[in-house]
Write a protein that binds this DNA or RNA. Structure first.
Lengths: 221, 221, 221, 221
DNA sequence: GATGAATGAGATTTCATTCAT
DNA sequence: GATGAATGAAATCTCATTCAT
């Protein structure tokens, strides 16, 4: 349980009660996250979480009604960080834009790690499944919307099935974080972006967008 | 499990002992699979599996050292069915080829269902993780090989990063089965195939392959 | 866990499964009863009951879903023994009849002991309260019925309120077992019976009944 | 417990400290009583009592060493109210005297309610049992004393066993409060009194006492 | 081999009591 | 004195695994 006040010599190690309680709650949340990620949800006990957070078993139940609720709190806290950002396809070079978005999203996911427990929970707890499904639908419709705007401007392949492409993008984005560990090679966001862009834009449009972007940059500097 | 054979004095039991034991083992495997899929691995007890298979709890432990080993046996038995087939890109219309392969693979996955428990186990049991990683690497290299052959024949985009594309295909294939439930629309294998082909082949090559295919079919008939 | 078979040398120490299980169930019931009576319901833990019955904690839960259910089983098993017998006022000397009934009932209660925990449970568990109330109503109406028959024969005090008297008798009978411990004197069933009879019969009727009884006895011998 | 006095600068707090402490103690006692009666002793937690009394959990332990001690204080405070009044059999109509005494006692018991938890505690805490036994003995000897005076004046049945009758009266009085709920009819104190009087006095004596009472009343008015 | 009752370690959860603030 | 968060012992209950029959 880190307590920064301890380091401030000359001050009373005083925190208003609410804040201290918040600290403890957070310590429990963090410990829960850490242990869930490293051992899985079922393999982690409430006692362990409490011990890891440096509090007694009973304290766990002051802040959370049970393990499940701690997890749900974690999910709610972190949901926005799990969602990939919404790309704006038009204004600049789509490949490098996507690449940096992917890299940032990937970094966030790896820092978070919580997504690794989710598949375990989908089977055991329908409400988690519901929760995740909702989130996925949200992301999917975001991606779909971006694609639609690009399509309206005549930038995409002519016979593009937006539903399917946006779903494919979703899947690629969601699984990007795992590329390295499972195929032995570090994720190459630049290449992934190229693949995605190729699904969306014909080569000439892509070239055009990239040229416009370069011009843009030259004018700006 | 009532066994009327015991009552037929003077007849040979219809199955030699070893085979009857095999039957029990298989019943347990099937029950394990069914229950793991519907309730998750941790939520399924050895007693339940035994009861579902129509044998006594203790019998479970005659055939499997524990729950984990039953699962590993399941995985080994079914692994080949989890692997998607290796596409041969050259000989026919890639889109319809892929489409039918995807559909067949998807059907197998849904019949199997076992893949749904795997994420739960990856964290709990490193050997499962190892096992799965191995399988994925195998599939990945199959896909990669197919792509390489296409590339050597000059069929693919010029600047194609084969590693990345094959990884993207892997991800799409692996997640294809879940498309429907999660985005509200039934999986459309035709469209998915088109997307994948667009990642791999330039439009003119694709057209050419499809024409060749049609010619082929006409000649054949 | 007493096992009488151990003492039968030369016999197989064999009991059919059901009987053995019954034995264990009974051992648990008895242990529950003993401990509930000596320590109270709340003060007795499932673990203790199991240990006292010579079985493991888990075995307790094989036979009873929880402590409460064991108690309810006890109550159902013993309810008929808790009910006082129905007196037949007419056929013989009411005082000695009542006296022997009271003594027998009292002996049964003391052997049983379970009634001592009931008050504790009435507050905690409304279903126990309901259960007991039902039993009391049954006894009460039995007593009332006996009184009515006596009244119809013109044997009782003229202005007798049957409801009230039967209630008073119920209360006296129910509390008879506790007389000794709480007032320092052994229960004197003969005297209690006299008191009850005085509530019901005028002295002359009582005398008459007793005389008739004596005549009866003389004729019988 | 909001306390506006703290805000009135320059005024003496309305209550000296000790008295305010007394108030808290009393609030705790009352809350304990209320909750014990409605939920039972074991089912009531110290935290609940404190919350109900409007003080912090810790404050509970400033005034009482533990839950048990709060209960004992309750008992000591209320014991005199639990004791039924001592009847004076001679000076007036015993039936109506008893009737009004019974009614008053019954009302007190119902207001108090604490007697309902006692059975739960007798088994758990021998000192409570001791305490209650002492109280019962006290009441019993009071009743016995009254009967003896009546006997000395030759008012009672000739062969009356005073011990037994006084015990029977005690039991009836103690259980009177529960008559209604358990037999479906409201307690009828007049009838109960008649029953008790019939146990004690022969009809002619009773008549005589009632006549004397009427004469008394006529003379007084 | 088969059975399923028995085991007991371990997870979840509660609550009387303490103690830093 | 008052507070209420924290404690941790203890109760309830589950289930993988064993073993007598």
């Amino acid at each position: 349980m880190p307590d920064h006040d301890d380091l401030m010599i000359g001050e009373f190690p005083f925190l208003p009660k609410q804040e201290r309680a918040q600290q403890k709650r957070n310590a429990l949340l963090e410990s829960g996250q850490t242990l869930f990620i490293s051992k899985g949800y079922e393999q982690t006990t409430a006692k362990e979480i409490a011990a890891h957070a440096g509090v007694a078993t009973g304290t766990f139940y002051r802040y959370f009604s049970d393990k499940r609720q701690l997890l749900m709190s974690l999910l709610e806290d972190k949901l926005d960080k799990l969602l990939p950002p919404e790309p704006n396809w038009v204004s600049c070079d789509p490949v490098s834009l996507l690449s940096s978005l992917l890299e940032a999203h990937n970094k966030r996911l790896n820092e978070l790690g919580i997504q690794r427990v989710l598949p375990e929970l989908v089977l055991k707890d329908p409400s988690v499944a519901e929760f995740l499904g909702e989130a996925r639908r949200k992301i999917h419709s975001r991606i779909l919307l971006g694609l639609k705007q690009a399509e309206e401007k005549g930038l995409t392949w002519e016979d593009l099935d937006l539903e399917t492409v946006s779903w494919a993008i979703l899947v690629i984005v969601e699984n990007g974080h795992g590329k390295e560990g499972q195929t032995g090679k570090r994720a190459d966001f630049q290449e992934i972006s190229k693949v995605i862009c190729r699904m969306v834009f014909p080569p000439d449009v892509l070239q055009q967008l990239q040229n416009a972007d370069e011009t843009n940059n030259r004018n700006n500097s």
